[in-house]
Simulated assay, not measured.
Amino acid sequence: MQKVSKIVLAIIILSITSCASKKDIVYFQNDEVDQSKINYKTIFKPGDLVQITISALDIEAVKPFNLTSSSATNTNVSGTPQHSYLINNNGYIDYPILGELKLASLTRVEAIELFKKKLSPDYVKNPTVNIKITNFSITVLGDVKNPGRFTIPNERISVIEAIGLAGDLNMSGIRTIKVKREEDNQIKTYKLDLRSNKIFNSPVYYLQQNDVIYVEPNKSSSQDAVYNRNTGLFISLGSIIISLISILTR
């Protein structure tokens, strides 16, 4: 009877342990998602390379604003190499005819409206403006299968998609991750718990260019890494000590 009780107790403990470990690992548990807070927008920053295409019915009128570049790798609809503009440290680009324009901290919608106001009606009537970031990239580091820097062609990527690009977290990766983002000339850190649906309401759910995701390894994994790194040293020291003892005791 006592043996049966021990077996039952072991099963209960095992069940509790299994539930706890599952709760620590599984993504998107519980918590409701506020759909109104899910918002995607591109915000231009210093260091961005942008391609700006101006279109209108009057083709001749827009030609001075669409510079070409022999070294460009991206092309417009007609196949012509597009010139890229670097947003400088002060947030400005130097654009043909219009001069210096501040794009940093503007959303894409705001930047397009700025160009339209500058162009119409003096230079181009009813212009269509397209702005694209050509060096949009994010970085995923830490306890994931394939850490690295990833270029995002369409400028739209969520935290979940970025983790997918990196091959997902390893089982030893802590499910509360960190997102590093530069805002107002400062690096800010946001924490997101992948186990909760609340991540969809985070201001960093949709990543901005140059964001960094870091996945910290759990304590057990960190200790194993330190142990494995020092194992060779311990063996070497042990061999030296044994050799010294052998010499001294002869």
Rank of each mutant, 00 (worst) to 15 (best):
Q29N: 04
K22S: 12
E32H: 07
V26D: 11
N39F: 10
D31G: 00
D31L: 07
F28C: 02
D34I: 01
V33D: 01
T17I: 11
V33F: 11
V26S: 07
K23Y: 15
A20P: 01
K23R: 07
F44I: 02
C19N: 11
K37A: 05
S36P: 00
I43R: 02
I25H: 07
Y40A: 00
I43P: 01
I13H: 06
C19A: 14
S15H: 00
D34R: 15
K37V: 03
N30S: 11
S15L: 12
S15R: 00
I16F: 14
I16T: 05
E32M: 10
I25Y: 09
S18H: 10
V33W: 08
L14A: 14
Q29T: 00
S21W: 13
D34N: 15
Y27C: 05
K22M: 11
A20K: 05
I13N: 08
I12E: 01
C19R: 07
F28G: 00
D34G: 01
I25N: 07
I11M: 06
S36C: 04
Y40F: 13
Q29V: 00
I13G: 06
K37I: 04
K37E: 09
I12A: 13
S18A: 14
I43W: 07
L14F: 15
I11D: 04
T17M: 11
Q35K: 14
V33I: 15
S15N: 03
Q35I: 10
S15W: 00
Y27W: 13
Y27L: 08
K41W: 01
S21F: 13
I25R: 09
I12K: 05
K37Q: 12
F28W: 07
F28I: 06
S15A: 15
I25V: 11
Q35V: 13
Q35A: 10
D24W: 06
K45Y: 06
D31H: 11
I13F: 12
Y27A: 08
V26K: 12
I16V: 15
N39T: 08
A20T: 08
S36I: 03
I13V: 14
N30W: 08
I16H: 01
K37N: 13
K22I: 07
I25M: 14
Y40L: 00
K45I: 01
I43Y: 13
I38R: 11
I43N: 04
K41E: 08
S15V: 03
S36W: 01
L14Q: 06
N39L: 14
I38T: 06
Q29Y: 00
I16Q: 06
D24P: 06
L14P: 02
I38G: 05
I43T: 08
N39G: 05
S36D: 12
I43L: 09
S21V: 12
V26H: 06
I25T: 11
K41M: 05
S15D: 04
I38Y: 09
S36L: 08
N30K: 14
D34C: 04
